[in-house]
């Protein structure tokens, strides 16, 4: 199974457009699994008439403290990298909203006072949406701060059986994006030829490079000003895979929840060819 991440630094550059187009085009010949990893605001399912159904709740470790057993030794506070615990002479305070579920506190507690609790952080949805195309997405609960547990779960659930897995990454270049791109065979960076676009693209390209994932660039809303992206790509020896022109007609379809996969011919071929070349 080949894994391709569709990422970008900046939001709204067209990741979902590319991810959905690519998945549909590939599904004509191969078995494809599309993972919408933007768990804070998943939107791939909007473009399919058969929306996936809810499958399971995702929970993370949440320490439960037995105050009878705790002798306020302070070990858990020392080990917690995230400052969630504060131990006083006669009590332990827990700031749950800061917890990253690392289990460190449970491991070090000499009294066995910390036990395995759990807390729901979101839900998983998945089903077959078209012939040869299966869509998975997750929706984070309101108020949660960390997207990565849900992305981890989405990727963990990805079993073999598909030829291609397409990961629609969350925008930005922080943990959720890195979590999505890590371990992929290839990353497509979708960028806009604007000063904002190039600024964020540079950061995203750095992250992808650090993760050791080869990448190429798709310029969206291309036209005239591509120079700023071209220069950067040349400098960093990253190939420009495709230029999606600005199209009012395409935008009109999009606004109605329709992505025509054949609208910009050659997109999938270019991406796959480049990935296989590397």
């Amino acid at each position: 199974m080949k894994k391709i991440a569709i990422a970008s630094g900046k939001g709204g550059t067209g990741k979902t457009t590319v991810a959905v187009m690519l998945s549909r085009l590939l599904s004509k010949k191969f078995k494809v699994r599309l993972l919408d990893c933007d768990v804070e605001n998943p939107d791939c399912h909007i473009f399919f008439s058969d929306a996936p159904t809810e499958k399971e709740e995702v929970c993370v470790f949440y320490p439960e403290v037995d105050t009878e057993k705790c002798n306020c030794c302070g070990r858990c506070q020392q080990v917690c990298e995230f400052n969630c615990l504060f131990v006083m002479k006669d009590r332990l305070m827990f700031f749950g909203e800061l917890c990253h579920s690392c289990r460190g506190c449970k491991l070090v507690c000499p009294q066995g006072a910390i036990s395995e609790g759990s807390r729901p952080v979101g839900k998983l949805f998945n089903s077959k949406v078209e012939k040869n195309l299966h869509l998975d997405y997750a929706l984070m609960n309101v108020g949660e701060a960390r997207a990565t547990p849900l992305i981890e779960k989405l990727k963990k659930n990805l079993k073999s059986g598909a030829d291609y897995a397409i990961f629609d990454s969350p925008p930005g270049a922080s943990c959720p994006m890195a979590e999505t791109v890590a371990g992929c065979n290839y990353a497509v960076l979708v960028a806009e030829p604007t000063p904002f676009g190039i600024y964020d693209l540079k950061i995203a390209a750095k992250v992808v490079k650090k993760l050791g994932v080869p990448c190429g660039i798709v310029i969206n809303r291309s036209g005239g000003e591509d120079k700023i992206i071209d220069n950067f790509a040349r400098q960093k020896k990253i190939n420009i895979l495709f230029r999606i022109p600005y199209s009012r007609k395409f935008s009109c379809y999009y606004s109605k929840g329709v992505i025509k996969e054949n609208f910009f011919p050659g997109l999938a071929d270019k991406i796959i060819k480049e990935m296989l070349r590397i």
Binding site: E68, C72, D90, R91, F94, G96, E97
Partner: peptide, 13 residues
């Protein structure tokens, strides 16, 4: 940044 709710105060003794 954004703040969030939810905390526990495990007082004992």
């Amino acid at each position: 940044g954004r703040g969030r709710g939810g905390r526990g105060d495990f007082s004992n003794r």
